[in-house]
């Protein structure tokens, strides 16, 4: 029988780098040219099926990038199995912001969290300010996954999530819990990897 996993993923990054667009492309394969900025945190799910028929269900928290809500971010990345930290390749400042997020995650998030650095907006490569080499080098130094995407064209989006989906089951320690969505998220969760603790039904919060 094929294996099924469930992981909590959080998106972080500066405002307007395209976090919500990335999720919309990944979850619904859609794109919206004019999206309002996220003021809050949206919850979505998407399942990736790997070549060996392993299915990985992502429970995604898409967070607000604005500085004023920064203090709430820990509530969303706590207990996350993976974080996708997004920057805009046309804004070098957004990479700086991404570095800040990564430092915070390394300091405060679950020590086993898988972090992926994601350069978005490759459709605007003409205005590129962040070179692939620079970002890649930083990612290697910090031991992060890295990739470039365009939420607008869809380029690289599935690749990066699939790469995470492949890596997580290998890394996720037995102690790592699934998402905190509780009973509401998934009505039936048969076949969750036995190495993982069962997802606690009705448990509101792992804090």
């Amino acid at each position: 029988m094929s294996k099924q996993y469930q992981f909590k993923l959080v998106l972080l990054g500066e405002s307007a780098v395209g976090k919500s667009s990335l999720v919309l492309r990944f979850v619904k394969d859609q794109f919206d040219d004019y999206r309002e900025s996220t003021i809050g945190a949206a919850f979505l799910t998407q399942t990736v099926t790997l070549e060996d028929q392993t299915s990985v269900k992502f429970e995604i928290w898409d967070t607000a990038g604005q500085e004023r809500y920064k203090s709430l971010a820990p509530m969303y990345y706590r207990n996350a199995n993976c974080a996708v930290v997004v920057y805009d390749i046309t804004q070098s400042a957004s990479l700086e912001k991404a570095r800040t997020w990564i430092r915070e995650l390394q300091r405060q998030a679950d020590p086993n969290i898988v972090i992926a650095l994601c350069g978005n907006k490759t459709d605007l490569a003409a205005r590129r300010q962040v070179t692939q080499e620079e970002a890649k080098k930083y990612a290697e130094e910090e031991g992060l996954m890295w990739g470039e995407t365009s939420a607008k064209t869809g380029e690289g989006v599935n690749d990066i999530f699939t790469a995470i989906a492949k890596k997580l089951p290998l890394i996720a320690p037995p102690s790592a819990r699934g998402a905190t969505r509780g009973a509401a998220g998934a009505p039936a969760r048969t076949g969750v990897d036995l190495n993982k603790q069962p997802v606690a039904q009705n448990e509101p919060c792992n804090c």
């Binding site: 509780g182 509401a184 804090c207």
Partner: peptide, 14 residues
């Protein structure tokens, strides 16, 4: 309602 907080919605269906 079920106990809930930011990022942990509790039992939404209930």
């Amino acid at each position: 309602l079920s106990p809930a907080c930011a990022g942990s919605p509790g039992d939404d269906s209930g």
